[in-house]
């Protein structure tokens, strides 16, 4: 592996970690609302969250460009309020990855929240626990394997994000050129096969490692709970 390869891997990991870390609270909140909430428009919210999963990624990227560009309604607010810009920046790559990973994360977390036995929560309440304590000591720990699974799935998905990223923040080496984008560039260059092979190999290894780690974690956490948890 060359120094350039390492830089690409480093950028990819940074983008994915920020994407998952940043949207984890939002993903959990949405999963909670979908699992437990009763309100009109739930189906619509569900569909909106899942939209990036079925929309052509180039459309998602274009919509991010419109909304989060310097002149966009959201982008201009971020720039003036927080000094945060997304266009042609690695932060934009993280945002695109987060939007694409969100449906997978919400899905995994929602299933795990729905699987929490409500009778344990009722039991805790008879023992005097407030709603917040029930959430902290019963619901969250019991749902944790699914939360971890969702985060790792989101991370793996972020590592592979291509279409929305290249549309939104372009393909700038050292700034927005993550692994898939670097592979795409190398494919355009005559004699780039060696680089493609190396980078593709790294991609496979990283994704595989993420999935194996999450499976092991989920199993370890589920061992005491008398139920099986699987990511795969």
């Amino acid at each position: 592996m060359t120094a350039e390869d390492w830089a690409i891997v480093h950028l990819s990991l940074k983008v994915s970690a920020v994407a998952v870390g940043g949207c984890l609270p939002l993903a959990f909140a949405l999963a909670w609302v979908l699992a437990r909430g009763k309100f009109a428009g739930k189906v619509l919210l569900d569909a909106l969250i899942h939209l990036p999963l079925v929309l052509p990624p180039v459309v998602t990227g274009w919509m991010l460009l419109i909304a989060f560009g310097p002149q966009g309604p959201v982008g201009s607010w971020f720039e003036s309020a927080l000094g945060l810009t997304f266009m042609f920046r690695w932060t934009g790559a993280a945002l695109a990855a987060a939007v694409m990973a969100l449906p997978l994360m919400v899905r995994a977390m929602r299933l795990s929240i729905e699987a929490v036995d409500l009778r344990f929560e009722a039991t805790a309440m008879t023992l005097g626990a407030s709603r917040w304590r029930v959430f902290r000591t019963i619901t969250l720990p019991l749902a944790l394997p699914g939360v971890v699974a969702g985060a790792v799935l989101g991370f793996a998905r972020s590592l592979g994000e291509f279409g929305a990223t290249i549309t939104f923040v372009s393909n700038i080496p050292g700034e927005t050129q993550t692994l898939p984008l670097a592979i795409y560039s190398a494919l355009q260059v005559p004699g780039g096969e060696a680089a493609v092979t190396r980078l593709a190999g790294i991609s496979v290894a990283l994704s595989l490692a993420a999935l194996v780690v999450s499976e092991v974690l989920a199993r370890r956490m589920a061992r005491h709970m008398g139920k099986s948890a699987h990511v795969l």
Partner: peptide, 19 residues
Amino acid sequence: SVQARRAGYVFQDGRLFPH
């Protein structure tokens, strides 16, 4: 409220917290 009633409730299946 449930919490303030202070019932000691023993369920059929024990319902010990598994974690």
